[in-house]
Amino acid sequence: MPADVFADVQPVPGVAKPDPVLVVDGVNRHFGGLVAVDIDHLEVQRGTITGLIGPNGAGKTTLFNLLTGFDTPNGGTWSFSGNDLVGLPAYRVARLGMVRTFQLTKALMKLTVMDNMKLGATGQSGEKVFGALLPWRWREKEKEIEARAEVLLERFTLAHMRDELAGTLSGGQRKLLELARALMVEPTLIMLDEPMAGVNPALTESLLVHIKALRDEGMSVVFIEHDMDVIMDISDWILVMAEGKLIAEGGPADVAANPAVIDAYLGEHHGEAATPENEVVESEGEDGDG
């Protein structure tokens, strides 16, 4: 289905999409004299899985931070489902239905798995300070939220852990929890920052299934990933960044054949062994993690 959507879209950077959920114009971010992000124009098609790739330090996480209100760009405009997001604080962006996760998981370790889930729910009057004092009013909603959380936990195979502190989960389970928690916000666009990083192969497989399922339910997904196999497997469309710019985009086949992409990656790893330590240091440093 999604492949049809892109039938008439040319694989050139900044190309317009038939039904964009996210539109970015001229967003740029400088640190000192260095340009971390500089996007002329970018559109994300609604209801598809869009992969965002690029060498370390390409500015992928910074772009996520900018778009979701966790960082402020030096200039530019962007909108989500027709809502102008410029200057909007992160929590308002999330409430509009554009929810992000983080490269380093932010499971709330000292809260139970269930409390983590409930936190994602919106519209709970008990979260207001005066509403909190009227338990008979928030209890009903709480039950509703809990029921919704149960379903999601079941789906992400975390139901047996519901009353455990999130800190007792394994790294992979925390990734799952973070994804499930984000879904509690009922997003229409979900932005995943390396959801597969540090997750064992079996869990990666199930995460992939989950992400595809989200798309099939009509959600839009943007995700940052390093693993090329994963990208090629599930992306309907791929965006490629290097040195802050959008250098290429297209379907998996287009991108794989694009010389600019190959150049960007070869240039990055030229004459050096990329040890795991290097990876960590660089991605944290250059991308400026969440």
Partner: peptide, 13 residues
Amino acid sequence: EDEDAARSLGKNV
């Protein structure tokens, strides 16, 4: 625990 997490879930920290 983590205010960015709260923010990402739509809470006005």
